[in-house]
Amino acid sequence: MSRFDELAERVERLVLRHEELKRTNALLEQQLATVSHERDSLRSRLLAARTRIDALIERIPAEQVIAGEPGERKA
Rank of each mutant, 00 (worst) to 15 (best):
I57C: 07
V11Q: 07
R17E: 01
L16T: 15
L42F: 08
L47N: 11
A49V: 03
N25D: 08
A49Y: 10
R3L: 11
R10E: 02
E20A: 02
L32C: 05
A49D: 10
S41R: 13
E29F: 04
R52H: 06
T24M: 15
T34F: 07
T24C: 12
R45T: 00
E58Y: 08
L32Q: 00
D54L: 13
L16N: 11
V15S: 13
R39W: 05
R23Q: 09
K22W: 02
E9V: 01
A33N: 00
K22V: 05
E12G: 04
I53V: 07
D40L: 01
L28P: 00
S36W: 03
S36E: 01
R52G: 02
L32D: 09
F4N: 12
T34G: 10
E58T: 06
L28Y: 14
L7P: 00
L56D: 08
R3Q: 05
R50G: 01
L47D: 15
E58V: 07
A48K: 06
R10Q: 04
D54I: 14
E6G: 06
Q30W: 02
D40Y: 05
S36P: 11
A55Q: 12
A49H: 05
A48E: 13
T24W: 03
E38Q: 14
R23L: 11
R39T: 12
I53G: 00
Q31T: 01
H37W: 03
L42H: 01
F4S: 15
A55T: 09
Q30F: 01
E58H: 13
R3G: 15
L7N: 06
V15D: 13
L28F: 04
L42A: 06
Q31Y: 12
E58D: 15
E9S: 10
E38G: 01
H37L: 08
E9P: 00
R39H: 04
T51N: 12
I57G: 05
A8H: 01
H37C: 03
E38C: 10
R39Y: 04
E20S: 08
L56G: 11
A8G: 07
D54W: 06
L56K: 09
E19T: 02
S36F: 00
I57K: 15
A48C: 08
